[in-house]
Nucleic acid binder design. Structure first.
Lengths: 192, 192, 192, 192
DNA sequence: GATGAATGAGCGTTCATTCAT
DNA sequence: CATGAATGAACGCTCATTCAT
């Protein structure tokens, strides 16, 4: 209610940017599909860039939220680990637009600048510190292989992203059991 | 010798498209840096799209060639498997331009159309049949987990790509031993 | 009291149009600085053009009023003449916003249309008839050089405008005596 | 021959910018009237601003050239002085487009920035040093009134500009004799 | 009356592509 | 064959104006 149009613009932009690629979705097209005037977008977003970044943060937040909700300190380490992977994979498969948007974003000039900032330490570690902590705990307790954090991330999330991509593109379809077994395979890659 | 200019254009395009992103490298800029006239590019490539696609096939071929050269039927399965992974990872790290180009490409409209074609079966299986055969052999001999081929690809190559990306972006640096251990971790993900 | 807002809008518009130039002061900016809604301006002025024209008439009136107040039929011709020049120059220097607005206005499309109207005789002779009468008197009494009225205006007011401009822009600063001597120089140009 | 199009664009821009005002002449309109594509302008001028500035320098140069050509060290001071005035007035009247362009320019954001630069001494005194020298000579020889240089400029050129404006706008028409008498009147304003 | 969100025509500018030389 | 000047459709963005509240 607070900002009907803003939401509609974001929703439409997500759709269109994924559907047509970052270059194939002019502001005018987004406006038209969102049912607003071309200038209206600029009431809610300073820029095209701004819109694209906002959309990114939006999605990142949603994922972080889902992961945190699923995350429980009660369960033993391995289960917590698997829960994170499963939740993520399921979410990505269930939200193909969001997922594909992230992929587009990361390979756009925005994403590159974004990552460079992260590398330079110019940004707060955003919300994923929980997962980082989980990995660091695993390292300390010698449950995980002896690799730098980044590499462990690659080993665990790399395949998940790849699988999600193949699902999104329709190359495979996964039932509950397959999903679980895939995450276990990822676990095999990082566990000691 | 056959076509000096064509090669120069391709080399320059690779450099520039990666350096400036797909949007930041107009034809005129490529022409200028390649030392040719703007119109000359169109003697060798029908289109901007055509140039971009050609560059993609070029790189894909180079990688396939490297993998095939390294590949030997003599060694036992596990070693052949590791060899493929190590060779690929090393190549990607050693050729950051090529690697980053592939990433850009896959998230561009071209890459999307490309994958759609592959999915529809509109394309020859490209050159990686050797690797496919290796994986299929592993499945048949029950050395690999019981997953569809695509999923095994994801489990094995997904992390390799991720690691290569982090190297290219300067997040980590890997020595010989680390590289080997990473590929072994990937092997853990797929081996039964 | 009658129309608090109207005055505030005019005051703000004067400030902003001079400060930012005619192109650099959108209606929304004027509204904001005036502390009213964007639409409110259109209650008091039909148009952007209308606002700009009104402001012009406003300023012109103020100047005419000042000149008339200073003007006295008692004094001899030459002194009356000098009084007009001095009063004008002082007023322009003391009111740089008004002065710069006039200059902007005259070189804007409005000013051009405005002058065309005057030329076509489509307008009342505005309020400066007193000064016209003064000049015509000087012509009749052969105190002024034998030129058409317009030329005498140019000879007398042209330098005054130029001097005022240089003051406003900070090129010179004038004390009382300098001001007087300048006006006397203008008088030299027109007197017989 | 060297650059047919560039000249044509400048000519058309002069025409259109004067005719329609600085705001009323979009690039597309200039291009169309010049008989070139919209993009073509940008081969010759980096910017709209650039085009406008170039045009200004162009005109300034032409005037400077004319004044220098007419200028002769042989004649006595007063005659040289009158020659400068007459030449300028005649040129301005004979070139109404150039003249009106200068007026537009000086009251545009460009002109203001331009003058501020001159005031700050950020620019070479352009080509009018000859005239400055003439005035300074007059001051030294006590032929001119005791005013700062700027004020003398205002007293002499202010009326000339005003007269030129009135001619350009059609308010008066001047024959040879009238022109001369007007310049003599300007001389009366500055001479001791 | 007063508001300010919404509009969309119109602007300056870019760039893939063509074609006369 | 090679060139690069010329093109013009298409883009991101601004802002005078309207109108539902």
């Amino acid at each position: 209610m607070k900002s009907d149009k803003r939401e509609e613009i974001l929703r439409t932009a997500l759709e269109l940017l994924v559907e047509q690629g970052f270059h194939g979705a002019p502001m005018a097209m987004i406006a038209k599909r969102a049912g607003v005037g071309a200038g209206t977008i600029y009431r809610y977003f300073e820029n095209r860039d701004s819109l694209i970044l906002d959309l990114y943060y939006n999605i990142e937040n949603r994922i972080t939220t889902v992961l945190q909700k699923e995350y429980s300190l009660e369960k033993p380490f391995r289960e917590r680990f698997l829960a994170v992977g499963t939740t993520l994979l399921r979410y990505l498969i269930a939200s193909p637009l969001e997922f594909r948007y992230l992929e587009h974003f990361h390979n756009s000039p925005y994403g590159i600048a974004f990552r460079r900032d992260k590398l330079m330490g110019n940004s707060e570690t955003s919300g994923c510190s929980i997962i980082e902590e989980l990995f660091e705990l695993g390292i300390k307790q010698q449950l995980l292989k002896d690799f730098p954090l980044v590499i462990l991330f690659d080993l665990f999330f790399g395949p998940i992203i790849s699988v999600a991509r193949d699902c999104t593109l329709g190359f495979v379809e996964l039932d509950e059991e397959a999903t679980n077994r895939i995450i276990e395979a990822c676990w095999d890659a990082v566990r000691r």
